[in-house]
Design a protein around this nucleic acid. Structure first.
Lengths: 240, 240
DNA sequence: GCGCACTACGTACGTCGTACGTAACTACGA
DNA sequence: TCGTAGTTACGTACGACGTACGTAGTGCGC
């Protein structure tokens, strides 16, 4: 009986190769790399089983020998880019280390703008994600706190980074698919917003927009957000 | 010349009704409500132009008279449920008010589990979203801070709530579409995770899991996360 | 009251995920 | 040593999807 039917399985628990039959032509890494190449170049929506198979140079249905469902392909992709996380020897300053982690994560998401959309707690236990998580915990060794708290810190920091970068990027990803330009889109949206604010129904929003007349420094906003998260987990010294 | 071709436009800037032609059979609210009904009952993936049209009782292509692109349908849906936000008179305690906002948002997302997946900064300026934002700013009147800071607070709180609830719910939404049961899925994932941890490659993860032997109180985790975010924006008193 | 802008909607195209059947191939049990 | 079971490879096909386009009917503004 072959495993044709749907069987509950984590892709990582499936052996990549069993004894019998012809040698597989590709590895899981080949497949993940092909999918990542497509997503980077043409966006996540271009990642279809057909495209990935074509990129690999095999028939569409051959892919299903390696990846039982498309969902699993996504899981492979996230794990593949998770391997790009540089893991260093923690230097004793957990705040500095976590800031470095956050910036690295953001850089990774800029290289692979589709990552925020695929981020899911379910993918949190792929091999490279486990290595990453272990590294974060190692960085947090100097912090006096229970592991439960440390995991909450990592989750919150990751969440904030992901949310922030998603807000940075998914408009861009969205705009790429539109038949008109980003400027046109923005112009229409801003005009609408200005009209709404000018209606007087939202006095505080109006005040907020006149206060911040200039362009917002998104870089600084991100930095402040990170600091705030880390502040929230920094034990108060006894002297206040 | 009719507006058949793609024109950059925010759906809210399009008049719902112009003078000419037969009366439209449905309002935007009708359409949003139908889509929300389907998403609530059958999940977001069941929201197709065909299904929504069928739910309304009209032909598929008639929908396009009201909603130029599916993306706009999503925007209508998010705005429709944003109307469920209860807006009260702020009582002077901004922390209590923001906690109430956060809990209300979470409750809303539990009623409509697909909302976290659709949350996007782009939808942040729909009519009901603007009302909601203005209400948050009103709640924050007692807080001594620039509007820029207040907007960062609201963004961060919303982000954390969304991330948290998404982690709560999208597994469930995902599982609904699978041909096997949630228990089977979880059993396989946990078995794999246990195997990985038992390998000894992740000593801190192992310690974390033995430390938190019992089931995690997700409710308490959420509450702590909210407190931490608000702490990060609470001005330090002069005396420490 | 003519004409235009609108509503309504059927048809059709290109895409998607993937179930299924078939042929070739290889390692293991006899 | 040799079937044979479990693979790999992949073509075909089905039922979805978003939506471009054509056509017919409707009612307000000139």
């Amino acid at each position: 009986m072959t495993v044709r039917g749907a069987v509950p399985a984590v892709i990582w628990a499936r052996p990549e190769r069993t004894g019998r039959g012809p040698k597989p032509a590709y590895t899981r890494d080949d497949i993940a790399a092909a999918a990542v190449r497509i997503a980077d170049a043409q966006g996540l929506d271009a990642v279809s089983m057909r495209h990935v198979a074509a990129e690999l140079g095999c028939g569409t249905m051959s892919l299903y020998n390696y990846v039982p469902r498309k969902e699993d392909l996504y899981e492979l992709m996230v794990d593949a880019v998770s391997a790009e996380h540089e893991l260093w020897e923690p230097n004793g300053d957990w705040r500095a280390d976590m800031l470095r982690v956050a910036h690295q994560t953001r850089a990774l998401m800029h290289r692979h703008p589709w990552v925020p959309r695929l981020m899911s707690p379910v993918y949190g236990f792929s091999p490279h994600a486990l290595r990453y998580l272990e590294h974060c915990l190692a960085c947090l060794d100097p912090l006096q706190a229970a592991y439960g708290t440390k995991l909450e810190l990592v989750a919150m920091l990751n969440g904030v980074v992901t949310t922030y970068v998603r807000n940075e990027l998914d408009t861009a990803e969205r705009v790429r698919a539109l038949p008109w330009s980003e400027d046109e889109e923005n112009a229409v949206r801003i005009a609408y917003l200005a009209g709404q604010i000018a209606s007087g129904a939202y006095p505080r929003m109006a005040a907020a927009f006149t206060e911040d007349a200039g362009p917002v420094d998104l870089e600084a906003v991100f930095e402040r957000a990170l600091d705030r998260v880390l502040d929230a987990f920094t034990p108060r010294g006894p002297g206040g």
